[in-house]
Amino acid sequence: MARPKKIETANAVSRRETLITASAKLFNRLGFQRTTVRDIADEIGITSGSIFYHFDSKEQLLEAVIEHGMTSGLSIVEDHLSNLIGPLSRFHGLVLSHLIALTGPPGDAHEVSFREWASLPKEARKRLRALNEQYRIIWVRELTSLKKHRLLKSDPEYCRRGMIAALNWTPAWHKQFSKQQLMKVSDQFCAFALNMSATDFIEQRKNE
């Protein structure tokens, strides 16, 4: 008896996601060039040839890994911002969600994107820049709101660049953060960007 198409599709999606997760882990640990298709197959217990049912090449798999990190990060950010109103609360939510994405399950994919961007084919980089632009727009929007409320003194775009560069180094401090630690780190980053003390930032955020 033929298997129902819905089950086959679900299994294919699950296998593809497993491949992306395993590849992100190996690309992060070994590097893209040193990781072989066999390494990835062995990691999840399948044959090397099975990978090419889902991806045409290792480069296409790298693109899928980086895309996963970007889409996961966007989803986390949008979820955190959905219930926040005040400009300080939204700024804190933006920073916190960025840190959650970096230190959570999508973290390997983000690390890979930092290190292996140049390994992507030109067309893949072009496609992924569209996703990156969505994230840039979110940051500039929130920082511009802070500027309008006279809470940010610097240029929103330059602030964004500096903030993201600094935030992306956070996993180098610790491999794991508790929720409480992430909240504290987020407060410190926000206070620094706005030239406030962390105590003043927290008080103003809570009183919005």
Rank of each mutant, 00 (worst) to 15 (best):
A24Y: 05
A24E: 04
K25A: 13
K25Q: 14
K25L: 13
L26C: 01
L26P: 02
L26H: 04
L26W: 03
F27P: 04
F27N: 03
N28R: 15
N28Y: 14
N28L: 11
N28Q: 15
R29Y: 06
L30A: 11
L30G: 05
L30Q: 11
L30V: 08
L30N: 14
L30Y: 14
G31D: 06
G31Q: 06
G31V: 05
G31I: 02
F32W: 07
F32D: 02
Q33I: 15
Q33R: 15
Q33A: 15
R34W: 04
R34I: 01
R34A: 14
T35P: 01
T36D: 06
T36C: 07
V37F: 00
V37C: 01
R38W: 05
R38A: 12
D39F: 01
D39E: 03
D39L: 00
D39G: 02
I40V: 06
I40F: 01
A41K: 00
A41H: 01
D42C: 13
D42F: 13
D42S: 15
E43A: 08
I44S: 02
I46G: 00
I46R: 01
I46C: 03
T47A: 15
S48M: 04
S48V: 05
G49D: 01
S50D: 06
S50C: 04
S50Y: 12
S50H: 07
I51N: 00
I51G: 00
F52V: 10
F52G: 11
F52T: 08
F52W: 12
F52C: 09
Y53E: 12
H54P: 04
H54A: 07
H54V: 03
H54K: 01
H54E: 06
F55I: 00
D56K: 14
S57E: 06
S57I: 07
S57M: 09
S57N: 11
E59C: 08
Q60V: 10
Q60K: 12
Q60G: 07
Q60W: 10
L61M: 13
L61F: 09
L61N: 10
L61Q: 11
E63P: 10
A64N: 03
A64F: 07
V65W: 00
I66F: 08
E67N: 12
E67I: 08
G69K: 08
G69H: 09
M70P: 00
M70T: 04
T71K: 13
T71G: 08
S72N: 08
S72D: 09
G73R: 08
G73A: 04
L74F: 10
L74P: 01
L74G: 08
L74C: 03
S75A: 14
I76E: 01
I76D: 00
V77Q: 08
V77R: 06
V77H: 01
E78T: 11
E78M: 03
E78D: 10
D79F: 13
D79C: 11
D79K: 15
H80N: 12
H80Y: 12
H80F: 11
L81K: 11
S82Q: 13
N83M: 13
L84S: 12
I85W: 15
I85R: 15
G86P: 06
G86W: 12
G86M: 09
P87E: 05
P87M: 05
P87Q: 07
P87C: 08
P87S: 07
L88Q: 08
L88H: 12
S89F: 04
R90Y: 06
R90F: 05
R90L: 04
R90H: 07
